[in-house]
Amino acid sequence: MKQTSVRVPYEPVEVAPVTTNRRVLSKIRTRQKVLEAARQLFTERGYEASTIRDIAKHAGMSTGAVFANFEDKSDLFEAVLMEDMERVAERMRAAAAVEAPVNDKLLSVFSAGYEYHLEHLPLMQAIIAQSWLRPLNAELRARAAAKVLLGIVGDALRDGSRAGEIQAEFDVRLVSETLWDGYLANYRRAVYDEWGLDTLRARLADQIELVLAGLRTK
């Protein structure tokens, strides 16, 4: 008895970190499994038709295990969205790293987005639909993530400006957001008119030209 009471203070120091790590790791794995299952169902069925119960079943765990990791379906959806935005950001950054005239670079950056999202269009459709329906705090979080993507577009514009292709002084935010509006609007055509990557790119190239036309130095 005395021995155990003496050992108690040491235990957390020596043993606890290991179990915590293991527990943390298994929690991360569970979370990842749930996320994957959710992504798959959202992609196949859209947001509305995917239930937590189905997602849990798909992940091979209880609904309780899902709720231990995510507050509700919208929380889960947001996690999928954030993961998507990070992946798209990575691809867009890679596209922006290639030296090219400003219009080509912008086209590559946006095309990276199209390429990624065309692979699971229903999910993108759900993402855009939900973007109109989320509460303000979720909107603010999504905006912070979108700011990263817009930043990549903004940097491409600044590069073009430094290279003397477009004016030195312009409203980077306004131009980036206007391009973004066109980029997003085209997803409708992908969904309802079955536009593929080539058609999307061609339309976007025209939109980019249109927006840049007013900013060209010559």
């Binding site: 109109w132 206007t178 509006d181 066109g182 997003l184 609007a185 339309r203 025209d206 939109q207 927006v211």
Partner: peptide
């Protein structure tokens, strides 16, 4: 000027502004 392209772009901007 490509008016189809232009008016569609106007519309995209117009709609997104509701956000």
């Amino acid at each position: 000027a490509d008016l189809d392209l232009f008016s569609e772009m106007l519309f995209a901007v117009y709609v997104r502004n509701y956000r």
